[in-house]
Amino acid sequence: MANIVRPYGDTLDDGKVQLSFTLPVPDGPKGREAARLLVLSWGFKECEVVNSAAVSDDFTFYVAYGKTEIGVDYEAARADTASEDASMGMDETCAFVKERFGRKVVIVGACTGFDAHTVGIDAIMNMKGYNHHYGLERYSMLEAHNLGAQIPNERLIEFAEKVNADAILISQVVTQKDVHVQNLVNFIELLEAKGERGRFICIAGGPRISNKLAVEIGYDAGFGKGCYADHVATFVVKKLAEKARE
């Protein structure tokens, strides 16, 4: 059954939306009217420009409230939950690995290409972890190798072969001009050219990476904002068990 929902301000279905944006025009009544018309043109039924401020001579910042009548069927929305599972904590993951595989699971991670930001891969892998979620290095039944930043794809594959990795984690933080996608695609192509795509579980991560994007370009999963080591570890060991059954 359809369940139509609309934005909620202080009354059900009032459709109140908060907006802020900049226009390349000077501040003044004309600019505020232009901002109001712009918001209405997006389908809002009412719009109030509550603040305008000159950012420079030729640019103005607006805060506006709009009212919409458009709703969405909540029941029809399908979330991409493949990478949402963090059901196993550190101890449980290690116990699972011990029981199913009887050996340590090897995970190699790096931030690849020219991307110099280790913050993502560190959050997942470093002993300390992030936001009270221990990183993979602390898991006694995982052998975690964090190669750091600016690692060429070739070197990452070489290293994964050397330590006989079960899973490879690639972090991409810089996304300007879609450089992260090119880099991630190039990695999969290299693996495929070597006939080794099936050998490793491949995972992409970063603040702008979604599971959907990652799967589309040939990864087993993608982990974005709000994901911790628990999510990654749960996915890797379950996937590995699945692979072992095949």
């Binding site: 802020s20 944006f21 900049t22 401020a53 950012v55 420079s56 640019f59 910042f61 300007q176 603040p207």
Partner: peptide, 15 residues
């Protein structure tokens, strides 16, 4: 952690 700053983000920061 979202994007490289927009012009208005800098404005808000300075204010």
């Amino acid at each position: 952690a979202i994007h490289t700053p927009f012009m208005m983000d800098r404005y808000i920061a300075v204010e």
